[in-house]
Amino acid sequence: MAKNYEFHFQEGFAGETVTVAVDGQTRVSFKARTRLQTGLARIESLQLDPGQTVAIAVPELALHQTYRVAEGDRWITINLVGGALVVRPAQASPGYL
């Protein structure tokens, strides 16, 4: 049964277009820019089933990363660090200050 997963786009985004595709189908596309006061660019919620593959891409930087949806995950953080996309599940809801 599908449940809600939160994708937190955090540090390193400077207005690039980000696309999020699930099993090859683009679900959402947006421009992401990190707000330095909080370290957050955008939170995107998706209804997903465990086992599905989420592909996150920043085409203009030729960056691409995938995440295979796990049953126990709920929050996934995405950071653009050192010229690479780093996708990690978080143990708790990320907070921003």
């Binding site: 006061q37 909080t38 939170i43 990320p94 907070g95 921003y96």
Partner: peptide, 13 residues
């Protein structure tokens, strides 16, 4: 508006 995940912000930009 962002919800419970925002604990504080220097909003004035």
């Amino acid at each position: 508006d962002q919800g419970r995940s925002l604990g504080g912000v220097m909003f004035d930009d």
